[in-house]
Design a protein around this nucleic acid. Structure first.
Lengths: 201, 201
DNA sequence: CCTTCAACCTAACAAACGTTAGATTTTCCA
DNA sequence: TGGAAAATCTAACGTTTGTTAGGTTGAAGG
């Protein structure tokens, strides 16, 4: 059990270190130091530095896909689904584990085979957003000319939060998520008064 | 003049190399090879690898701020300004020089002082968007609760194009810019027929 | 023709890196 | 309690890196 927990400690410290300094700028010796272990000992748990990076990303993608899937499955209305999806996505990128940030930022440093695997899962995640939007287009007549493009735009906009959000920011995650949701749903331009639609959440 | 053009060649090759492999993964020896020069010769033009990165980013930020400023100055309507700003931003991130990508992605690898300088310019760039949005809020009654937050959301959404756009994609830059603009302006939700507003561009 | 100076080359240094092999300690069940 | 297997340490390896020092070239100018 010490083995398993030590391995888990190393992974957690790796996530923190990689996020702070980036994968290439992070040293296995410093990772070992933070995990309370000597440099060479890491290789008893992992076969290479690359494997650590891959495991971090793979676990994160699995987690994100699962959480999004189960959340969506509990709702029916595309409006509510999109709202929850956005909130989950932003939440996961701000308060989520460091791994989320890494998964967004270190794709470049995966070797060919690992890259292929992670991209496949990222596409699956994106596909969930596409289904929500396509559903809203069909059932709620959302004005979407290209579902794929909109899904990408939304995902990137929300993930971009990590690039400016500081933990001491004046915004709460709820405020950010809600304002992003409103921006995407109704846009900037003022509209004539209209009946409130599908008040869920 | 050979001096100046060689220096310019090195900078261009550095932008291309850094974009392709990332700053840390790029070697000065390979940069020298691509620029048709021996490894040590780079230090006749630059004082360090770090200086090359900084110059690339600094030039790019200056260029972006200037182009955006002059474009905005020629227009009056916030709607037209936002449309042009979005288009310019996306265009600069897709077809623009490799430097744009680097400026977005290698902030982490700037040392303390250089980081401070680049961030200051990035903030100035962001401020232009904020002014456009604040103006639209005042004159066109845009529904914006927090100008700063919306500016950040828009900028990140557009910059995120670089993360999925491939040069052989089915979308043209005009299509992407126009759809992003429409998404931001009117949102997803269908609205009752309305008079066309401020048809510019 | 000679000096000068920028541009460039060559060769090396010192440091840091991922990784490995072998010894040593700890754990835990028979 | 003994002994095997897992966990960890120690010490080094080969390579690559940014950087530097000193020499070489070639063109410009008096």
């Amino acid at each position: 059990m010490t083995s398993r927990s030590r391995k888990q400690i190393i992974l957690k410290e790796a996530a923190s270190l990689f996020r702070e300094k980036g994968y290439l700028a992070s040293t296995l010796r410093e990772l070992a130091r933070r995990a309370g272990v000597q440099g060479g000992s890491i290789y008893h748990h992992f076969s290479s530095k690359q494997e650590i990076l891959f495991l971090l990303m793979d676990n994160t993608m699995n987690d994100m896909i699962e959480r999004l899937s189960t959340t969506i499955a509990e709702l029916d209305c595309p409006l509510a689904r999109l709202r929850h999806a956005i909130r989950l996505h932003i939440e996961y990128h701000i308060f989520g584990p460091d791994e989320t940030y890494i998964t967004e930022d270190e794709l470049r440093n995966l070797d060919t085979e690992n890259y292929r695997r992670i991209i496949a899962k990222r596409d699956r995640y994106q596909q969930i957003f596409e289904e929500i939007i396509a559903d809203g287009k069909a059932r709620l007549n959302w004005q979407v000319s290209d579902v794929k493009l909109f899904a990408r735009a939304i995902i990137q906009m929300c993930a971009g939060v990590t690039r400016w959000y500081k933990t001491n920011d004046t915004f709460s995650i709820d405020e950010i998520a809600e304002q992003y949701f409103n921006l995407l749903l109704t846009g900037l331009r003022e509209r004539p008064a209209e009946e409130k639609q599908t008040q869920q959440l």
